[in-house]
Amino acid sequence: MDLELSSRTPQIIAAEINSIKEQTGKILLQSAVEIGRRLTEAKAMVDHGEWQKWLESSVSYSQSTANKLMRVFAEYGSKLTAGHQGGANSESITSLSYTQAVILLGVPEEERESFIVENDVASLSTRELQQVVQEREPAPNDTITQLTAERDDLRKQASSLKAAGRTNEATIKTLQEQLEAAKKGDASAGKIAALEKELKTARAKVSANKIIFHFDSLAKSFNELLKELAKLAPADPETHQKYKGEINEFIGKMREML
């Protein structure tokens, strides 16, 4: 017994602890996937508008926690199953701990497995992995393709808006001329009122078209902002919360201006 104790060192004990931690992390990931699977199933059954209430009363989860677990299932479920069944392509996924898997949600699914191998994720600490994910550069071709598509879409929208604007401006000009002629002539009050109403409608349509264009652009930008915020969450929770607070504050100010 004394010999056994004397052969143990702090380094050996640390290795044992780290091994247990690694195995626990893998068990947690598998458990998270299974919980996410069942949450996804339940969400399809729960009545619309009752989901948050069901989460709180039935499983004591917040909606954000449930969303994270369902995303873990969506992103890793099939790959973990394939890995356990001997799928070579998912071997890198099955070696992940829960913490690593959550951080790696910040990497696009199609790039994740190669990212794990190229960065030797197994050898990185949690902080190191967060930093690597945060500093990751998107694939240049993907970025260029996305930016080009967004640019072309905006150009099409702007072109359509200009064309509609020219048509509406021509309509407004015609109505103004008709209204002026009606007022100078012997047109009835009803005719003048009808022209005034039609002119008002045409002007409102011009404003509405501009609002639609700017609103669509704003909505797209906001969606992109939310995507980037979601990517940041697992990689740097503190910065994520900071920007989330600033965005909420900005939204509040915008609401006051309406």
Rank of each mutant, 00 (worst) to 15 (best):
E91K: 12
I247T: 08
Q176C: 00
E91W: 10
S57W: 01
I251T: 07
Q157E: 12
I212S: 13
E256L: 09
G190V: 10
P237K: 07
F115A: 05
E22D: 09
T148H: 13
A187E: 09
Q146H: 13
S6I: 07
Q130M: 15
S159V: 03
A163V: 02
L105V: 11
A74G: 00
S95F: 01
Q100G: 03
D153I: 03
G77F: 05
P108I: 08
T81P: 00
Q100H: 07
R155V: 07
L5P: 11
L29M: 04
T148M: 04
L232A: 12
G36W: 05
A233C: 06
Q131H: 13
I211T: 12
M1N: 11
M257G: 00
Q63V: 06
T143W: 05
E135P: 00
F213V: 04
I103L: 03
A219P: 01
L69M: 14
G106Y: 03
K162R: 10
L229Y: 05
Q157T: 08
E249A: 09
S6T: 08
L55A: 06
A208M: 13
A32C: 04
A74W: 01
E16W: 10
L225P: 03
E228R: 15
H84I: 09
K53S: 12
L5I: 02
R8K: 14
W54M: 07
I144P: 01
D120P: 02
E246D: 12
V72D: 03
N67I: 10
A202C: 07
L199Y: 05
G106M: 09
T24G: 00
N119H: 15
D120E: 15
M257T: 06
K231M: 11
S90Y: 04
P234L: 00
E169Q: 15
S95M: 06
S31R: 14
A158V: 03
N248A: 11
E169Y: 12
L226Y: 04
W51Q: 02
T99L: 08
G245P: 09
F213E: 11
L199D: 10
V121S: 03
D2I: 06
A170S: 11
E198H: 12
